[in-house]
Design a protein around this nucleic acid. Structure first.
Lengths: 338, 338
DNA sequence: TTGTACGCGTTATCAA
DNA sequence: TTGATAACGCGTACAA
């Protein structure tokens, strides 16, 4: 690092380091002329205040961390985009971590983040374990946090979620109205609260319409296509499904692939609806009926909430509010009745 | 930040701060017993060495920055994933910046990154301006950098790219072989080198097959769907195109939408091929013929190259190598001849 | 094997 | 309006 530091710049200008510092911080208490002089010389010599020194000095990093299960997912990249907008506007940087749905990594990240590196965390969890208490281990040291979408209900932080129950209810009801009798619910990690909530919407819709519900209709998948493919194919064949409600877009895609292979025609033989933030859902063959969450807005809001906490530390312990946003269901050909 | 620091931990154990420090750094020069004691107490009190203090002390941040034009793009999210793998393996963190194709932001990011915050930069450029010299302003202070995919040729850094010329040539030739006579080339920011390279492949393929090439067949688009839609529709109508070679997947999607609206049938009336990292290209209607870059591998390699430089500073000034990886063309229905 | 003391680059406080 | 100084938390040379 052959960068010039504040002392060298001070020498070059025959000024003290404090004056230099002032030129970069307060616009007060310094003559405009001096300030101009300093800034121009700084530009010339390419001086910039050292980030680590500043942060060490005033114990602020102006950085927040964003932890998501995966990056290659439209929903999360849009949410991150939303977070970034707000962070940038507040002069904050974001550090992005992707857990690949691995709890180990998640714990590791969070632990290491508690070293002063960031001022707060925005997270959508991997949700593998039942024991989330590692988050409480930090006690008073726990960083301000906001959870979104995939959340741990037993961890007290503000949470931004969508109306998953209602959306799932409507989605399922829609399939029923289109004539489906045997509707499968495809889910990844069904024990995570978000999966449960959606499952309840699904079950209640079946109930309302007096449709036979069986445990076997809930199909637990993973994030791996190669693992899911046989599972879905088996379900399609053995259970004679005529409708699929997918809780994640990845599973809808896998269903499409499976149907192609098995020569099952969507929507004629099988109707499909899915949670998805895919912008090209209308271009699929057939176009996919989707429940789309306001991902960017969720990101915006999560960040805003975090900054609220950051500005008023007292509130941390009380911040348990839950914000529920509405998803949008768009009907397309994959659920069209003949 | 109510975190405990090294001094407090030392007091709690009746040891000196240096011993504590040693327990976390060198495993040498410290009795195993003492070390165990320290680490267990540290865990209990939730002590972690302050990131900023450590970095300030030894002038290393163990962090690299990744700058990309956009996050909501399969290619870039996959590339980032690839970078992350390598970074993590080397014990480095990554800071992600998205420029939204805005040169201002790009310049801003890079300037602010030169404050010791990161040790190196991996970048795919926005490519708006002709003047990239802001990068050279840093002189000896310039951070180690690796460029990938969208690169500034006039900036000396290692570059990872794909065989864009060859792929474009083959793609165009494929359209010709499928019977296309009037092939349009859709590009964003045609002056960026990557666009130019692809254009050359396109033009040379036309030449080889003695197909009439006209400037008007090169259609300059933007990143905004609302802007592109009328441009593409106009081109489709006025130029009577029967083939489209899209340099970015976004433009292929826009072409699909436009064709739907204009009742142009793909591939019957119009054949489409595109650069794309979309994993569900086979699910489109019709399935899209794609040129797919090895995004994850590109990310891996970029990171590896950067770490090579980081480990041997001397090489920075010589590091001008250019690595060319091969893309893969997969033929699907969007270019099928009748 | 452990402890003492200094410096990394900055900024806030106080004095001039 | 400017300058001197101490302190942020850590790690290392050096001393013990």
């Amino acid at each position: 690092m052959d960068g010039i530091n504040i002392k060298q710049l001070a020498e070059a200008l025959n000024l003290s380091t404090s004056t230099i510092s002032r030129a970069f911080r307060n616009s007060s208490g310094i003559k405009q002329h001096t300030k101009d002089l300093i800034l121009s010389k700084a530009k010339e010599l390419n001086y910039q205040p050292n980030h680590y020194a500043s942060n060490l000095r005033d114990q602020k990093s102006k950085t927040i961390a964003v932890i998501v299960p995966e990056l290659a997912n439209n929903y999360f990249s849009q949410a991150i985009h939303g977070i970034e907008q707000v962070a940038r506007a507040n002069g904050y940087n974001i550090l992005i971590y992707s857990t690949d749905d691995d709890l180990e990594k998640e714990m590791d990240f969070i632990k290491h983040l508690h070293n002063g590196r960031v001022e707060g965390i925005i997270m959508s969890v991997s949700g593998e374990a039942e024991n989330h208490n590692y988050l409480n281990d930090f006690g008073a040291r726990r960083l301000p946090m906001v959870q979104f979408d995939r959340v741990y209900d037993d961890i007290d932080t503000p949470k931004i979620i969508t109306d998953d129950y209602e959306s799932s209810f409507i989605a399922t009801e829609h399939l029923i109205e289109q004539g489906c009798k045997r509707i499968g619910y495809l889910v990844v990690k069904k024990d995570l609260s978000i999966g449960k909530t959606r499952e309840m919407g699904y079950i209640d819709a079946l109930k309302k319409h007096h449709i036979n519900y069986k445990e076997e209709l809930i199909i637990d998948c993973s994030n791996s296509y190669t693992e899911n493919d046989p599972i879905i194919k088996k379900a399609l064949k053995d259970l004679k499904l005529d409708g699929i409600f997918a809780s994640v877009e990845r599973l809808a895609f896998a269903t499409y692939y499976a149907s192609y292979d098995l020569n099952i025609k969507i929507p004629h033989d099988l109707k499909v609806i899915s949670f998805s933030s895919l912008e090209i859902a209308p271009l699929l063959n057939p176009s996919l009926t989707t429940i789309t969450q306001p991902a960017v807005e969720i990101g915006n809001l999560s960040a805003k909430l975090l900054f609220d906490i950051l500005q008023d530390k007292k509130e941390i312990s009380f911040a348990k509010e839950k914000v529920v946003l509405n998803s949008k269901i768009i009907f397309r050909n994959s659920t069209k009745s003949a």
